[in-house]
Amino acid sequence: MNNFKKLEEEELRGSPLPPRVARDVNQNLGVLRFISNIIELYMPKVAELFVSLSGGNMNSEGTPPNLDADENGYIVKKHPEPPLD
């Protein structure tokens, strides 16, 4: 061990790391986890709110029941199904 590293060890022996640092770091980490959980939980709801405010609807899946897509991918009106015999 060189003299620079010995100096570092001596410094630590002279003034050890205060225990409050560990406590504060853990508290900060807890706050961060709480915020990230909140974001994870409510972010989809916020996105949904913006979509609905702009007139859209995130709950509908695919095209509405009276519409269909043709072979080129264009939305067209569904043909009424032929009556069953």
Binding site: E11, L17, V21
Partner: peptide, 24 residues
């Protein structure tokens, strides 16, 4: 790592309170 970080902060900042805050 915490002790070594604190030791470096203490040696550079020369103040225990500031070094503890900096370590955090």
């Amino acid at each position: 790592f915490s002790k070594k970080i604190y030791s470096k902060c203490l040696f550079l900042l020369k103040d225990q309170e500031r070094a503890a805050d900096a370590t955090q």
